[in-house]
Amino acid sequence: MNVFRILGDVSHLLAMVILLVKIWRSKSCAGISGKSQILFALVFTSRYLDLLTNFISIYNTVMKVVFLLCAYVTVYLIYGKFRKTFDSENDSFRLEFLLVPVIGLSFLENYSFTPTEILWTFSIYLESVAILPQLFMISKTGEAETITTHYLFFLGLYRALYLANWIWRYHTENFYDQIAVVSGVVQTIFYCDFFYLYITKVLKGKKLSLP
């Protein structure tokens, strides 16, 4: 475990906690895409099925359980407790446009044609595009609350740190996982535009709003 990996995981956890605290404190999920959060819950569920079959480390198990809990609590807050504040009108990304290609690709391009391996591949591909409904929602409404941009920043930072982690692992352990790396690069690219806006606007104290 290298420093990029640990910081990446911490950043991922921080992103999820920021989102939960934002919703909880404001008692509102305005501006948050429920569809993206459902996709993340689906990502963790299909990837962490190995919790039941494969023990890797205490750290690994605890983090997986925490990630699953955060994802499901977030979905519950959006579609349950605070559903009246949920902006379903603007959360209009068509999920089938993501799910159909992702399911197709996970059957075509995987390491082994077994149910668990296909589900793992599905989760990797799905994670790389799961944020799109959220980014779509921001581009549709033309703005995002500052706290929502912090959430997106840490989620993007996690991806960037994982890329550094893979470069490190390739050089030190000769380890690489091409499915994860290619999807990770794609996923990180989706955040580039947002990073630019975050640095040029939010960090200078302005609200993120699109022209």
Partner: peptide, 10 residues
Amino acid sequence: KRKVSVKDEL
């Protein structure tokens, strides 16, 4: 060659 990856990452 292809092999099932070691899934120690989150």
